[in-house]
Amino acid sequence: MNGGADNASLGNRIAVVTGGCGGIGTAICERFVREGATVYAADIAGDSRSAARYLSLDVTCEDSIRAMMERIGDEQGRLDILVNAAGIEIESTIEETTLADWNRIFAINVTGMFLACKHALSLLRRAGGGSIINFGSYDGFIADPGLAAYCATKGAVHALTRAMACDHGPENIRVNAVCPGYVDTPMLQGFFGSSGDIDSLRQAVQDVHPVRRYGTPEDVANLVNWLAGDEARYASGQLWVLDGGLTAQVQQMRL
């Protein structure tokens, strides 16, 4: 069978995951390792909780990105998979968002992705092509209250994803974005924390999902793994919403 999930579907692949020590990033690294890939977990701080190789990375710094790609090039000679999972959230309206906050979230969520993709291209070409997976969000389509700058960064990620798919498809480089809804991560706890009682919120949020739960980092890693591998060889330029059915509904009115 070609590329089923039972056996290593990413054997011999070289992968790097930015934000690789975060909630979702760790789950992706663990999954890639299980699928047989050589995985670099690149993050600003902390250590790789998975079996991935830790790389110190500041995605906002072009020299840091260059140094990372040089090291991967020296050690592996190529790159097959780039996952741009580094991202932050700022819980405020634009009125409460300072220019410094705005610049910081764009630097990490958008500029960081641009730099990582830009400097990965030559290594991806050396592999004969590859798969780039960006982190968009369902917030790039519809707004969560009090997350204005975050929503805007995700809209930028979506547009850049399509543009890069269009430009680099002929080189056999596929570019997609995963757009998670509510996923159980420290970021979500932060969002809940700003809105009152976490336990009653948790139940209410679960109940509004058609699948009656919110997502796990493993759910997201399942989709990223599919997009990374050959099974998804015709998938490019798309924004893959994974939200337990949340946005298939109109808002639930309490009448």
Binding site: V211, N222, S236, G244
Partner: peptide, 28 residues
Amino acid sequence: ALAAWLACDEAGFATGQCYTLDGGLTAA
């Protein structure tokens, strides 16, 4: 390949979506 993924338990959080698989055609 996508149908097989959507059919299996790996896609447990995927529902209510319309997933385009078009080689990038409609992204441009």
